[in-house]
């Protein structure tokens, strides 16, 4: 089934219908996008408006969040997980991974600390996905406490 879910190049000056799967949420709606001259004219099959936005982005300028790890000196563990603060253009992923592979850090690290600013010239930062204290027993690093969202939870 994977071969059909294609997001290949858009040929100019022709009207065509592209099939793709929305990856914004776990529902995974099947989308049909009508394209002409490299522009998305219409999207069908989406259950919400995020699906339309996804199809337009995916066909004109696909983006992904990149996640990886960075070596840390003097930390409780040898690696800190990192991610791009927002999705970046797909064609920049290789360059971003290259910059991440070169980076090193020193403990302590705070969650969401900027590790690489403006990675691969995308305007997006690479940030730490967790706190990393120096030694055992101080986790979460004192004073570095973050509450990501305030009780929006139901």
């Amino acid at each position: 089934m994977s071969a059909e879910m294609d997001t290949a190049v858009i040929t100019d000056k022709t009207k065509e219908i592209r099939e793709l799967t929305c990856i914004v949420c776990p529902v995974g709606c099947s989308l049909q996008a009508t394209i002409e001259d490299g522009n998305v004219l219409d999207v069908e099959g989406n259950s919400c408006k995020r699906g339309r936005e996804y199809a337009v982005d995916e066909l004109c300028a696909p983006k992904r969040t990149v996640t990886s790890t960075v070596r840390v000196e003097g930390g409780f563990l040898p690696l800190v997980p990192v991610r791009t603060a927002a999705p970046i253009p797909k064609e920049k992923i290789d360059q971003a991974l290259f910059e991440v592979a070169k980076a090193t850090l020193e403990a302590p690290v705070r969650i969401h600390q900027v590790i690489i600013a403006d990675v691969a010239g995308t305007g997006v930062d690479v940030i730490a996905s967790r706190s990393m204290p120096k030694t055992v027993g101080t986790y979460p690093a004192s004073g570095a406490k973050t509450v990501l969202v305030h009780d929006a939870c139901v």
Partner: peptide
């Protein structure tokens, strides 16, 4: 370490460690 955690409950797409840290802090 990949993203895909917390979309429903925290209304953002987090990585596993971020989701964990949120609840670790609440537990403490």
């Amino acid at each position: 370490i990949h993203n895909g955690f917390g979309l429903q409950l925290l209304a953002q797409e987090l990585t596993g460690p971020e989701y964990a840290e949120h609840f670790i802090n609440k537990t403490f």
